[in-house]
Amino acid sequence: MKTRLLLGLPAVALLLLFFVLPYVEMVAMSFRAPASGLPFGEGHTLLHYQRALGDTLYLGALGRSLLMGGVVTLLCLLLSFPLALHLSRTQGRWHVVFFACIVSPLLIGVLVRNFGWMLLLTVDGPANRWLLAAGLIERPLRVLFTPGLVVLALVHVFTPFMVLPIATALRNISPALREASTSLGAGRFETFWRVTLPLAFPGVQAGVVLVFVLSVAAYVTPALLGGQGVALMPAIVVRELIGSFAWPFGAALAVVMAVATLSVVAVFTLLTQGLAERTRA
């Protein structure tokens, strides 16, 4: 027993140092008084939360961030399920090739990837030239710096986080279950609907939580591809912290965002816990 505790110590120390302490410090910071010329002043105040929760500018940005997270998650899920199904049923060399394709968005740095999108989609970029040449459009599309492109780019990069847990869940389904289902009279579609889909749920739940949290908190991609029009929560937090040097207010906004995200995740997890418990292998 003692050695086991001892073995766990490094992990606990690591978590404390890099996870718990920074959060505690951030929460503490959000209650500090503002100051001019300095990141924060003497004393404590609830002022920042009043401001963060009382201003439609911030609440609107928070709402937009959560909404965008939801849209990205949903699109990711729709796109990823067929991919995961395919990945879970390929074997040998093709499995490796397909796996590499799935994780490819993660193999490229965030700046390079987004710069690629910019080059591809500028008004006189290759995408527009091809579409014009093919006669599919009459004038160049203006997709760069639109919320739609931000969603597209986030779906692209977060797809692996959805595909991999779902594929794992699908691979854990015994082929005998599908055979049992067909022997009992269910066709392919009915078997998918009654057996495969529900049993993939643990993977879906994990993927949804991951992608949602990641896309709500995404900063670089919206900043590079979204232009000035759409103000999302992470951008505002960064502006307060670095631009205005208002650490306490930035911390308060960050806490509000984190609490909001976690609440959504908690509600989703609670609502789906019954299904997840039943279907966990």
């Binding site: 015994s174 005998a176 279950l177 055979e179 049992a180 289902s181 067909t182 022997s183 009992l184 009279g185 269910a186 066709g187 009654r194 057996v195 529900p198 049993l199 299904l275 039943r278 279907t279 292998a281």
Partner: peptide, 20 residues
């Protein structure tokens, strides 16, 4: 004939019950 049209009852070695 595909298995779902055969009307045969199958009992598997590992039971193959639907866990959910």
């Amino acid at each position: 004939l595909p298995p779902q049209k055969r009307d045969f009852g199958v009992v598997f070695q590992n039971y193959a019950l639907f866990p959910h």
